[in-house]
Design a protein around this nucleic acid. Structure first.
Lengths: 219, 219
DNA sequence: CGGCCTATGTGACCAAGTCACCGACGAATT
DNA sequence: AATTCGTCGGTGACTTGGTCACATAGGCCG
């Protein structure tokens, strides 16, 4: 039988590790986290540096009124930048992370994390690039929320989430959170899109009828 | 006569440099940039890692319509995280940086920057912490724009900018950009605040009359 | 069937942004 | 002093988006 590759080899950014670093990381056993579990909330103390091996974790910013907005999703091979923030800046978490699927992850303790940063160029690069990527993406979220109108953001979200047959499995609430709006607004927009024949609606799903029609709304 | 301290000693985060690193940095001569100069625009290629020694640089995100929102200000001792993004992530600038005062800065070439990251723990910490700080602050901007109503954001901006006597030197347009809104909305809000007796208005300045009154709007 | 949870629909209203234009002030020039 | 010009601020009409309160409606399970 062929053994599954070790998790270190399943994290794309972690190539080029020297032997010692690799052995230190290999010694850590991945843990599994059930779907729906909240990995951390605002105010939680940061104790580990998390690297995702399988599944998906969504990170949300929560407002005082309970409204939430999706900051980014963490996919396999990516690290949790919120942890980096906390470990380096001594701050607590300011966002909330939810396991959207069952999740497999590696938790690197603070002390090892800090030591690897000093000793391993490859590890450092991994952490830095993850950082850069997240800052970019948070800036993009800000740009969209601040400058792009709902119709365009919604169309983009639908196109992004549609599978091969054009089906989007999401509630209006989920779409609203993803683009930083509220359910009622999304419901109304979707109804307009459906009257235009661009989508058809069903409980829990949206069928994209015309990708080109939606794409025309992106400007 | 007493010589002014070298610029390396005027950058708070750069303590604890080893001798070699320090000498490499000391060899770079600061440059001066006149007030109003645009240091970079979206799409510009990143060539250097900038550290600010004196003055203030504001970094804005610009929307398609020309609307701008202040991402953060760079003050002495701080680095330009946009540069870090570009140097590590191979991306071009996505924001615009404007010298708000005459500015004194040190431009560290890409090659030296990358080499120092590998050889100097102190330099690495400096870069990382700057990174963490900016990501935090961009997330805060997003949180405010997405969740906090204009009145509270404006009150916060006024309190933050008021000098000892409560005077704020800013145009309505500047305040609007700082909090991610538009001039007309700010003008109207300010008029309401002035009718409530919390501020008095003049061309180019706002006099805060009641800090406690403004503070009550922050919730 | 009846309860219950979740998803969605809807009207009224409020908050914020857009557009177009006006007037007021001040500095520089004539 | 009068003219010109650029910046700053005021205003009305309108559109978009968010809030609140409540109404339906489907699906699941006892």
């Amino acid at each position: 039988m062929t053994a599954a590759p070790h998790w270190v080899d399943r994290a794309p950014g972690l190539g080029g590790l020297d032997g010692q670093t690799r052995r230190q990381l290999e010694a850590i056993r991945p843990i599994t986290i059930p779907k729906g579990h909240v990995l951390f909330r605002p105010g939680d103390e940061v104790t580990c540096f998390g690297v995702l091996i399988g599944g998906r974790v969504d990170v949300y910013l929560t407002g005082a009124t309970g409204r939430e907005i999706l900051l980014y999703s963490i996919t396999p091979g990516e690290s949790c930048v919120q942890s980096t923030l906390g470990l380096l800046g001594e701050d607590d978490y300011s966002a909330e992370a939810v396991a959207e699927t069952d999740v497999e992850a590696v938790m690197i303790p603070r002390s090892l994390f800090l030591s690897l940063l000093g000793t391993s160029e490859a590890f450092r690069t991994f952490v830095f690039q993850a950082f850069a990527k997240r800052l970019q993406s948070v800036m993009q979220v800000l740009e969209r929320v601040a400058f792009i109108r709902i119709e365009a953001r919604l169309a983009a979200a639908l196109l992004e989430r549609a599978d091969d047959s054009g089906l989007v499995r999401a509630t209006h609430q989920e779409l609203a959170t993803a683009i930083g709006s509220v359910r009622e607004v999304i419901s109304r927009r979707l109804e307009i899109l459906s009257k235009k024949g661009l989508v058809s609606l069903d409980r829990g799903t949206i069928q994209v009828a015309s990708r080109t029609g939606l794409a025309a709304l992106l400007t």
